[in-house]
């Protein structure tokens, strides 16, 4: 089962995180991994070791914003939310991804 899981392509992690945050509002890191894994029917696996560096890079770039909060289990966690700049970046990334996917599938199907 572990074999069929796909490691996330370099650079798409940001796209997935942004998409997750834009649809689900504010989430902590663990919830983000959960959402991506479940939302992809366990097809995608988030490399946890690279998630946090990615989150920090994105908050330094102003795409997301981190804030300490309390989970429903009453524990402290850092919640991330998408910013306006993040939404703009998301639209661009989505567009780019779709074109890439379209191109790749065209080649796979007809070449």
């Amino acid at each position: 089962m572990a074999r069929s899981k796909t490691d996330i392509l370099q650079g798409t992690l940001a796209l997935l995180v942004l998409r997750t945050l834009s649809s689900r509002g504010s989430l902590h890191g663990y919830a983000i991994t959960q959402h991506i894994q479940r939302g992809s029917n366990e097809l995608l696996r988030v490399e946890e070791g690279s998630l946090y560096p990615a989150l920090h890079r994105m908050s330094q770039d102003g795409l997301i914003k981190g804030k300490w909060g309390i989970t429903d289990k009453n524990r402290e966690a850092r919640f991330y939310a998408i910013t306006a700049a993040g939404k703009k970046a998301l639209a661009e990334e989505e567009d780019a991804w779709r074109r890439l996917a379209q191109g790749v599938s065209l080649i796979l199907n007809f070449a």
């Binding site: 902590h28 663990y30 946890e48 946090y52 920090h56 402290e76 850092r78």
Partner: peptide, 14 residues
């Protein structure tokens, strides 16, 4: 320290 706490939280949830 913040990063430490964040990772701790992640690991305990897991």
């Amino acid at each position: 320290a913040e990063l430490q706490r964040e990772l701790d939280f992640h690991l305990s949830e897991k």
